[in-house]
């Protein structure tokens, strides 16, 4: 039973992956553009970071931090289209059939979008990393660091997809979800550490950030990768993964009820 369920999710995931392969060319062009953004930030941080560094960062590690985030941001945030797919499905009315499927609506969406995200990591993130590596590179030597980074990233992408899912499900109440997505993007940048280490923020903002899921998508994986923090941060990601899943399921139940009451 469990094996069959796993296979079902696997099939969905790989479909999402394969569908994206068609667009590889334009995504590679896109990668060059995000590498250029990365370049701008690298020079900015080289210019502003004091020679002695700040907090526990040196000039080198800040630059590595920025590069790492430029590589993973497609994976944990930008390339995720879950919200748009749910909105389209609500608009077209297909959502009624999708909700009626034996496989849970939530599980279905997450599994198929996780596949496209793996694609994003490979064909958007990795090329950005390769392009930026011209400006110096860093790879952890300790295999355990790799393992923890990948786990933290996997959770980060999951949290990213679930939070887009929540944005998408809001389409049941308001068909306009662009604003919600824009606000979320601002939070990923403002509190998640997508463009700078959180230590740069004023202390009060740092404290607020620690109580949100956004650092799971950028800051925690980067800290682990750079060996500035231990694997203990994984617990925080795990907590948010569970909490958001519960919240998303509850929201789905509410949406389902709304649909039943209004009959679509």
């Amino acid at each position: 039973m469990a094996a069959r369920a796993v296979r079902k999710y696997w099939v969905l995931g790989s479909k999402g992956f394969l569908q994206n392969l068609q667009y590889t060319a334009s995504h590679l062009i896109n990668s060059v553009a995000s590498a250029i953004f990365g370049l701008v930030y690298i020079y900015l941080w080289k210019a502003v970071t004091p020679v002695e560094g700040f907090a526990d960062y040196t000039v080198e590690t800040v630059v590595q931090y920025v590069m790492f985030n430029q590589v993973i941001l497609w994976f944990t945030h930008f390339a995720i289209r879950t919200h748009g797919r749910i909105r389209d499905s609500v608009r077209s009315g297909n959502v009624a059939t999708e909700l009626a499927r034996p496989m849970g609506f939530f599980a279905y969406r997450i599994a198929s979008d996780y596949g496209s995200q793996l694609y994003s990591l490979l064909f958007r993130g990795v090329p950005v990393g390769l392009l930026l590596s011209v400006f110096g590179h860093y790879l952890p030597k300790n295999p355990a660091t790799w393992a923890w980074t990948l786990l933290s990233l996997a959770l980060g992408a999951y949290i990213g997809i679930v939070s887009k899912y929540i944005v998408g499900v809001s389409a049941f109440w308001t068909t306009e979800i662009r604003t919600a997505w824009t606000v979320e993007t601002s939070l990923v940048f403002g509190l998640g550490g997508a463009s700078m280490p959180l230590e740069v923020l004023p202390p009060i903002a740092q404290r607020i950030a620690a109580f949100t899921p956004y650092p799971c998508m950028c800051y925690y994986p980067a800290r682990i990768f750079l060996e500035l923090s231990g694997p203990g941060l994984i617990w925080r990601s795990l907590f948010w993964a569970v909490a958001l899943t519960v919240f998303a399921q509850a929201l789905t139940a509410l949406a389902r009820r709304k649909l039943e009451v209004q009959g679509g």
């Binding site: 392969l21 068609q22 667009y23 590889t24 060319a25 334009s26 590679l28």
Partner: peptide, 8 residues
Amino acid sequence: FMAGLRQV
């Protein structure tokens, strides 16, 4: 395989 890429 990789049609999109080879196209470029």
